[in-house]
Design a protein around this nucleic acid. Sequence first.
DNA 1: CGCAGTGTTTTTGC
DNA 2: AGCAAAAACACTGC
Length: 276
Amino acid sequence: MLSVPELPEVETVRRGLARLITGKVFGEAEVINGATIAYPGEDEFKSRLTGRAVEAVSRRGKYLVLHLETGLQLIFHLRMTGVITSYDCRPGAGKHTRVLLPFQDGTGLSFHDQRKFGRIWLLQAGEEKCTGLCRLGPDWWEEVSPEVFMESMAKHPQGGIKGFLLNQGIMAGLGNIYVDESLFMAGINPCRRVSTISEQDGAELYQSVISTLTDGIKHGGTSIRDYRNAAGEEGGFQNRLQVYGRQGERCFRCGENICKTVLVGRGTHYCPGCQR
DNA sequence: CGCAGTGTTTTTGC
DNA sequence: AGCAAAAACACTGC
């Protein structure tokens, strides 16, 4: 049961970083785990990054993008256990510190990642070396309107609703926790096929996703184990989960026991009373 | 002690 | 098309 960074977590980090590091100039990176740097090679990564200032911090799906001078982009994907925090003075490298990115003023960023799945890319504008980012569908927080959502459902009627919502190429940003929570809020069983969901239920599901993401961001994300914001603080949404991780406990709404099963390879939590 | 479980993405195969 | 499995990895909990 690890808390994985999804849209609300990455958005929380983005907001923190925008406040903390905009305008700062990178010094020479310290790469402790070479595999974390997905592109380019380690030496070129360091030389391209050194001396570049951060102009803006954005997010697409679960990708965090630092926009640097002259169109350079420093891109992070936290995958399962990645944590980006800003530091005031250089920390001693902890057991899971993978990359340190110092700024020229003595502060810096630390990339910490227990499982080493997280990746960092440094790309010039137009370089398409981050396939996951290139293939991303519209972002749930900024680009998915009710109309876009209903059209996407119409385009993928055959699959299950859980796999549909998790597919980053269709719409980007949802992961396992927020999918389970959104389906609970909408009263839709995660086993349902997309084609069996009525227009009215689809509209309700759209609102449930937006509401769940809004609530997640409002409470600073979900920290079950690893997740921390840019200042190293935990989120609070783990205390508001309705079904995720609550298997065997009573549904807050109807009192039935929350069930857990496996769907599209993921642990899937739902209330058999509320979700049909 | 040992091993199943945890969940994101990519790749490969059905 | 969509799903399943495997792999990338390390640690927790049973």
